[in-house]
């Protein structure tokens, strides 16, 4: 599993602000502001897929960096 991938918020309009992804992220890349998920520092993202696998609303996914 290449570590190069980074989280990308592909469907922000679907976010319901439940903060599940925030809990799962091992490097605090994600934070909910005014009910909407946002990325703090993308460089901290280690591409572990925790957020993609746990998000109940298909808001974000890990994208290989060449597709960024």
């Amino acid at each position: 599993m290449s570590k190069k991938g980074k989280v990308k918020i592909t469907h922000p309009e679907r976010c319901k602000g439940c903060e599940i992804c925030v809990m799962y992220c091992p490097t605090d890349v994600l934070v909910v502001k005014k009910g909407q998920i946002t990325i703090t520092d993308i460089d901290n993202c280690v591409g572990c897929y925790n957020c993609e696998l746990s998000c109940p609303d298909f808001v974000l996914e890990v994208v290989e960096n060449n597709e960024r």
Partner: peptide, 23 residues
């Protein structure tokens, strides 16, 4: 495998059903 035009789904914020369906 998702009917994109039907999202966002109706389940409440934080409900586990979306996660289970996704997986």
């Amino acid at each position: 495998y998702l009917r994109q035009d039907k999202l966002p789904h109706i389940w409440c914020p934080g409900c586990g059903h979306g996660t289970i369906m996704g997986n």
